[in-house]
């Protein structure tokens, strides 16, 4: 480095400044007292904790500004524990700062890199030992060893095979069959078209055959939202229009994006919004996506009424419900 570019010189570590407690006995005594008091605060905290655990009723409430009326048992247990712990820490740190040595110490580093002779020594050792093992001279052993080691990994992978069944057709089927009644969720009451006013909605599930219990797996695929608007507001092709009934239209409630329940219906705009990722669907145009990340409309369920006047599914869903998957269109 040329002399012109030389940096400013390092003035070295600044001189140590003594603390009050180092030179003044009184200050040291005071610091000692402070540390002791901090430890005593911790003791108080523990006492508060014990009192709260044994003495405060679990249903007792206390009004605290900011928090509002809050459970006293939980609050004082927590405050006691917090005090007990926090002040031990404060005491220790205050002790270290005021009374323990505060001389800065210099330690020296050495480069991480080993000395050249050590490195050479290491390399030659490895080479020697590898030669002694004779791997290079016995290729048959080497190859069969690699083969066996490679194959042994198959067993643990196979052992995981029973983690779950294969999907099969499960992702594409729901409990909606031709003629399945729509029932309220919860309540399981069948629904007549007249039950639903214009502007009204209903969360529905398929009526299950007697004896079958509805599991969460079923709800995850079967949930449907019924919406009634004025029939003239529909903007549907003839087939989709035939899937509605007197202005009542049914969509899968499971979002075509990531499977959240899309039931946020705006009566004024006729839009359905998914609260998870804000995909917005237009009910009048067969749940066409008009905003947000979803790439597909919500599947529409074809509905009609049965002989007793109750709403039923005309046919199963014509496409898989819920989020996309690789073999969805196969």
């Amino acid at each position: 480095m040329s002399k012109e570019l030389a940096p400013l010189s390092d003035p070295g570590l600044p001189e140590h400044i003594h603390r009050k407690a180092d030179v003044d006995v009184k200050a040291a005594k005071k610091a000692e007292r402070q540390v002791g008091i901090l430890f005593l605060f911790s003791v108080l905290g523990t006492l508060l904790f014990v009192y709260a655990y044994l003495g405060i009723d679990e249903d007792a409430f206390i009004f605290v500004p900011v928090l509002g009326s809050t459970n006293a048992h939980q609050l004082f247990l927590g405050l006691g524990l917090a005090m007990a712990l926090f002040f031990i820490g404060m005491a220790a740190v205050h002790w270290a700062k005021t009374l323990m040595p505060d001389h800065e110490v210099i330690d020296y580093r050495k480069e991480q890199r080993s000395k050249d002779e050590d490195r050479e020594d290491f390399v030659s050792t490895v080479k020697d030992r590898a030669n002694e093992a004779g791997l290079g001279r016995r290729p048959f052993i080497k190859r069969t060893m690699l083969l066996s080691l490679g194959l042994v990994g198959i067993s643990p992978v196979l052992l995981l095979g029973d983690l779950g069944p294969l999907p099969g057709n499960d992702q594409k089927e729901t409990n909606w069959k031709s003629g399945t009644r729509l029932v309220t969720d919860p309540g399981d009451r069948p629904i007549r078209p007249s039950d639903l006013e214009v502007g009204g909605v209903a969360q529905v599930q398929p009526e299950l055959p007697a004896g079958k219990v509805r599991h969460l797996d079923d709800i995850a695929k079967d949930s449907v939202l019924l919406i009634r608007i004025r029939p003239e507001e529909f903007n549907l092709d003839a087939e989709r229009l035939s899937w509605t009934y007197e202005g009542i239209i049914a969509f899968s409630k499971i979002c075509s994006h990531m499977g959240c329940a899309v039931a946020l219906y705006e009566q004024t705009t006729k839009h359905l919004l998914c609260p998870c990722h804000q995909s917005t669907f237009d009910v009048t145009r067969a749940a066409k996506v008009i905003f947000g990340p979803s790439a597909r409309p919500l599947p529409q369920l074809a509905i009609t009424v049965d002989s007793q006047g109750y709403l039923v599914a005309k046919q199963p869903f014509s496409e898989p419900v819920g989020p996309s998957f690789w073999g969805r269109n196969k």
Binding site: L77, G78, L81, A82, G89, A92, V93
Partner: peptide, 19 residues
């Protein structure tokens, strides 16, 4: 002492939030 004390302080602050 500082590091050990700091553990108690972190625990204390967390317990305070929990309370």
């Amino acid at each position: 002492a500082k590091a050990g004390g700091f553990f108690f302080i972190v625990f204390g602050v967390t317990a305070f939030l929990g309370a």
